[in-house]
């Protein structure tokens, strides 16, 4: 896979630090399954996390904390330790394994709902976070999303096909990392639908007349 667009280092740090919403982190995790370069970056960010942990001042523990912890170990596990789990595959049916719980049948049998002509979506259940959502979008060839900006972050991973916008051309595996400073209008630009995974942590802000008509319909 030839990936040209990656998450910002700042987003990879947020993922590693655990300071990202669950929905945004899911899209980052799905990209990581496909991208060795970003996996290396996250390892670095976790090294940094370890070093910061080492640098914290020690909080006083309760009396007998070590004995209490050893008692918990004995109670829960005996004294056995867990072996390494078998390495699981990174992809299942061509999809990042992280997404399998929501897409057990892969991309060919998604329970799509039509949003507007040319655009179908599937909202991942159980990941709504305040105003943010995680959804799969299928954009028919030549269809443009309304021009929009973002109240917060919008992270997009292309899973199939491609789209182009003001920033560039995004193909399978590519990651678009957008924040409130960016407005864009993605257009599916090949003969096949573009399927992408999109997470937001706040509602999108559509601009222009078409966009304002679109907003209540889409609810993103």
């Amino acid at each position: 896979m030839n990936i040209r667009h990656h998450p910002d280092d700042a987003s990879l740090i947020a993922y590693a630090a655990g300071s990202m919403t669950e929905g945004l982190a899911l899209v980052v995790a799905a990209h990581l399954e496909l991208c060795p370069q970003c996996r290396a970056r996250v390892r670095e960010a976790q090294d940094l996390g370890g070093s910061l942990l080492d640098g914290l001042d020690a909080a006083p523990l309760d009396d007998g904390a070590l004995a209490a912890t050893l008692a918990r170990i004995d109670a829960i596990t005996g004294t056995e330790t867990e072996p390494s789990p078998a390495l699981r595959p990174r992809t299942v049916a061509g999809l990042p394994a992280t997404l399998s719980p929501w897409l057990p049948a892969g991309l060919d049998r998604v329970p799509w709902r039509t949003l507007v002509p040319g655009i179908r979506h599937f909202r991942f259940p159980g990941l709504d976070n305040g105003n943010g959502t995680v959804r799969l979008l299928a954009i028919a060839p030549g269809t443009a999303l309304p021009h929009h900006g973002h109240g917060g972050s919008e992270l997009t991973l292309v899973l199939r096909g491609s789209f182009a916008d003001e920033i560039g051309r995004f193909q399978a595996g590519d990651f678009a990392d957008l924040d409130p400073s960016i407005q864009h209008q993605p257009v599916a630009d090949t003969d096949n639908p573009c399927i992408c995974l999109i997470a937001t942590d706040a509602r999108l802000r559509f601009t222009g007349v078409m966009g304002r008509l679109f907003q209540p319909l889409v609810g993103i």
């Binding site: 982190a25 995790a29 990581l32 399954e33 060795p36 390892r43 390495l87 990174r90 992280t98």
Partner: peptide, 13 residues
């Protein structure tokens, strides 16, 4: 919440 953890090491690559 869950943390969506990915095997980051090279072994599976």
């Amino acid at each position: 919440q869950r943390f969506f953890e990915v095997e980051l090491t090279e072994a599976a690559e």
